[in-house]
């Protein structure tokens, strides 16, 4: 599903150029659950942004579903993203002004799903995430675990082929964290490809493969199953 080859990304200020990704290469197969680990500043988040089509690489190739996407403009990227990729963030990133229902509904609005179908789909996902009873609440009225469940619901509501999770349990206690990891595992078992960036060895063990990075390069790769 994903094939990156010699991927490069630099951040420049007036005086300094920092290498965030240094000729990084790896593949992710469809249905795989991959964890990316490494110390702060090793390029994990940059990698995730590029995989999520939120950012452009400065060099190398990125093939997504057999298509080279590294030169895509923002419109093309947005189009590909909204149909194929779901995101889960450490800080949930729910929109405070929208209710649980409306937050989960948003991706469906952007993909042009009809109102009646949207309602049905959102209810289905909320039921699955066991958060239906909170559908009319605003994010700030929920606990961290509940907020992350809503975020996962939002990530999967469009049935994406790929879920990118950026330290999904970073803001949660261990029991809520485990719940979220169980949810991701379940989604993976149902066929969704997952790439997760994490600092937590515990969370990484839920994956099939761990890629360890340092200074923008892949250091090791451990297959767990």
């Amino acid at each position: 599903m994903i094939k990156i080859t010699d991927l490069e990304k630099f951040y420049r200020t007036e005086e300094v150029q920092t290498v965030a990704l240094n000729k990084l290469s790896f593949d992710v197969k469809e249905g795989e659950f991959v964890a990316v680990m490494g110390p702060s500043g090793c390029g994990k988040s940059t990698l995730l942004n590029i995989l999520g089509l939120l950012d452009d690489p400065d060099g190398g190739s990125f093939i997504f579903n057999g298509i080279e996407v590294s030169g895509f403009n923002e419109r093309k990227r947005a189009n590909l993203r909204k149909h194929n990729i779901g995101f889960v963030f450490q800080s949930f990133n729910l929109i405070d002004e929208l209710t649980v229902f409306e937050n989960v509904e948003l991706p469906l609005i952007y993909t042009g799903v009809k109102a009646a179908d949207r309602k049905e789909r959102v209810h289905e996902v909320l039921e699955k995430m066991q958060i239906m009873h909170r559908k009319n609440h605003f994010p700030q009225q929920l606990s961290g675990g509940q907020q992350q469940r809503v975020a996962v619901a939002r990530a999967v509501v469009n049935n994406p082929k790929l879920i990118l999770a950026d330290e999904p349990t970073g803001n949660l206690d261990s029991s809520n964290g485990n719940e979220v990891m169980d949810l991701l595992t379940e989604l993976n078992q149902q066929g969704t490809t997952i790439v997760m960036v994490t600092h937590s060895e515990h969370d990484a063990k839920f994956s099939h493969r761990i890629i360890r990075m340092l200074d923008g390069q892949k250091v090791t790769e451990n297959i767990l199953v």
């Binding site: 189009n79 990133n93 948003l106």
Partner: peptide, 16 residues
């Protein structure tokens, strides 16, 4: 800014 980011991640184009 955060809202804009989320919306873009979820597929909102600049025009929208």
């Amino acid at each position: 800014a955060n809202e804009v980011g989320v919306r873009k991640v979820l597929g909102a184009e600049k025009k929208k």
